[in-house]
């Protein structure tokens, strides 16, 4: 095992902090705190991107870092916050069925992610192999957040944090995708965020709540 350069270590630390933010979202039962954790995750991904740009002298990554920071760190959390305020849900606390089990399952997902990434690990540099495993873990935790929680807002946070994990994987393992692709992805994320906002109102209008557990009209069974 060779010693990693200081900057690469810093990137790894940031990746680990991003993973920590995922766990904090998983355990937060207050909506506003979960949104704050998400904002921190966005900032961390942006910082990691900027560091990668500095290490690899990849100047187009500075642009991506800026884009991520403004989109995931500022704009989307701000939009979510505003929606929560407008729907009078700032004080809303979601009941998590078994909080300890949810977090424990999250930890198992991290182990699973490392296991999946094993064959990749053998052929690459020490930093890359960790990053791929960590970003896969963030993706899986986002997925788990969407399954374990039934609040529309937390589901959106899960969705967006999956995107964070993907972005981290792209940046840290491959020095970023071509710029056109990154701009396209950023555009899609932005449109998705706006659409989520629209849907909050639709769902609120139709079931007078944002609990997806109440979205049960469409089944194959005969209505009672």
């Amino acid at each position: 095992m060779t010693q990693l350069p200081l900057l690469e270590q810093a990137i790894l630390v940031l990746a680990a902090l991003t993973l920590l933010a995922s766990f904090s979202m998983l355990a937060q039962s207050r909506l506003t705190s979960a949104i704050h954790s998400f904002a921190w995750q966005g900032v961390m991904v942006a910082a990691a991107t900027a560091l990668v740009a500095a290490v690899g002298h990849a100047h187009h990554l500075y642009l991506s870092a800026l884009l991520t920071f403004s989109l995931k760190g500022l704009l989307i959390p701000w939009m979510l916050h505003r929606l929560v305020r407008r729907l009078n849900m700032e004080r809303e606390v979601e009941n998590i069925a078994h909080p300890a089990l949810v977090v424990l399952a999250g930890a198992l997902l991290v182990i699973l992610a490392y296991w999946i990434a094993l064959p990749i690990e053998r052929l690459e540099l020490a930093s890359t192999r960790n990053i791929i495993a960590i970003s896969l873990a963030i993706v899986l935790l986002g997925l788990w957040l969407m399954i374990a929680r039934r609040q529309v807002v937390t589901q959106v946070l899960g969705f967006m944090s999956m995107e964070n994990g993907l972005f981290l994987a792209a940046v840290a393992s491959t020095r970023g995708m071509p710029l056109v692709v990154e701009l396209g992805i950023a555009f899609d994320v932005l449109v998705a965020a706006v659409l989520f906002g629209v849907f909050f109102f639709h769902i609120h209008e139709s079931i007078e709540s944002l609990d997806t557990g109440k979205l049960t009209r469409l089944t194959e069974e005969e209505p009672a």
Binding site: V152, F199, I207, R217
Partner: peptide, 8 residues
């Protein structure tokens, strides 16, 4: 309500 649920 059905179509909103389906879309979600």
């Amino acid at each position: 309500p059905e179509s909103v649920e389906a879309a979600w």
